[in-house]
Amino acid sequence: MRVASVIDLGENSTVPPHRRVILDTDIGSDVDDALALALLLGSPTARLIGITTVYGDTVLRARLAARVAGSAGWTGPVHAGRAETLSGKEVWWAGHEGALYDDLDAERVASENAVQYLIDQVAAAPGAIDVVAIGPLTNIATAISADERFAGSVRHLYVMGGAFGDDEPEHNFRSDVAAARIVFAAGIPTTVAALEITRQVRIEQESLDRIAAAGELGRILLAEIEQWWRYWDATWNVPHDPVTVLTMTEPELFTYSAPGRISVADDGTSILHEGEGTTRIVTALDGNAVADRIVDGVVRAGRAG
């Protein structure tokens, strides 16, 4: 049974039928960012108004996001953001980012920095825009620090990150501990999907034919999935980021903790302190059902494009 709380969980009747969303992503390494973007584009309840990129070569990531989204017919703005982490930790780079594409330089990237775009959009519409953050939290933390209006104006923040219940640090939190601490101290209503939850979901071989048949977007995603499988010498992958998108678009698929406060240790490990706070974490899901919804949404986006 889901636990209700006083924080805005994004499930009440006052939510507009098409919520406005900004996706903050480190697309290009793990295929799950591209899958999350496709899932957002295929959602009947979300309207993606902009994309911001973070971590490493953010211009390349922005061009990749524009190419993937454009294949589904989306023509919104893509903004490159912070390349370096606030913590100073070196950026991890797989090396295959962008390798599948020709003429990426032709993809248009907005001139405005991602952090300023986030501030301008959210501050201009207080309580109206959700932010989905599926990379290190550097852009979000920088926006919080740069403008006091930002944290109080985000309707709800959805984060892929952390690991609760064991001692393993997760990539997004570990990559920029300083940013994670700023974000979770800001008081933004937040939902977190962490490793112990996302790892219960797999995209496996039987899903690939359906994805591949979903137009140009499907063909792009198939190539990205196969590239990621080769990188790990595997025949499946964990869709961490699409799971996070579903906590926003289909929250009824999940069970949640009571709201509390997240602390992040120097090594990136995380703890939820239940009680007074504005953050909840996902505590349970049906892995097969969630995997089916992810593939359904991706296919819907591809066919619409």
Rank of each mutant, 00 (worst) to 15 (best):
R149Y: 02
D292A: 15
I262G: 06
V238D: 07
A94S: 14
A234K: 15
T278P: 07
M248D: 11
E276F: 15
L246S: 04
H240M: 08
E97Q: 12
D292P: 06
E250Y: 02
A36K: 00
W229G: 06
V115E: 07
F173R: 03
D33S: 15
P77G: 02
D266Y: 00
V78Y: 08
G302Y: 03
A194D: 13
A125R: 15
A265I: 04
E196W: 07
W74N: 00
A36Q: 00
V290S: 00
Y117C: 11
G135I: 05
L60Q: 09
G305S: 01
G88Q: 07
R67T: 05
R261M: 05
L23T: 10
F184K: 04
T249V: 10
I119D: 10
G50P: 05
I262S: 05
V282R: 07
L217Y: 01
L48A: 01
E90C: 05
P16A: 10
N172C: 10
N113K: 13
R2N: 11
V21P: 03
L100E: 08
V243K: 04
L217K: 02
Y101A: 09
E274H: 01
A72V: 05
F173H: 06
D296E: 12
A291G: 08
G187D: 01
G98T: 02
S257L: 09
V183H: 04
D209N: 14
D8K: 14
D267K: 01
F173D: 04
L137G: 02
I281C: 08
G187T: 01
I144K: 13
R20G: 11
G73T: 08
L195W: 10
A62P: 01
L23N: 10
I271F: 09
A114K: 03
A80V: 02
I271P: 08
V3C: 07
A36Y: 00
N113A: 15
S145V: 04
D241S: 13
D103F: 00
I134P: 03
S13T: 14
D26T: 10
G260C: 05
I144Q: 13
A110V: 01
G73H: 08
M1Q: 09
A193L: 05
Y55I: 02
I203N: 02
G275Q: 04
H18E: 12
V201D: 04
R219H: 02
L195D: 11
G268D: 09
D120H: 11
A46P: 14
T52D: 00
V282P: 01
R108W: 12
E216P: 09
T14G: 14
E170V: 03
A94R: 13
A212P: 03
E204D: 12
A214P: 01
A141D: 03
L60A: 06
H18W: 11
A178I: 08
G162S: 10
A223F: 03
S29F: 09
A304T: 07
D105Y: 00
Y256I: 08
D57M: 06
G268R: 12
L246Q: 06
L253I: 03
A212N: 09
I51D: 04
A258D: 13
A94N: 13
G162I: 05
I182F: 08
G152K: 06
R47Y: 08
G10P: 04
H171E: 11
S270W: 00
T278H: 11
L195R: 15
G302L: 03
G88N: 11
E206N: 15
Y117K: 14
V3M: 13
D267R: 00
V6L: 14
A125V: 06
V298S: 02
A46M: 14
M160R: 15
V177M: 07
E90L: 10
A185E: 14
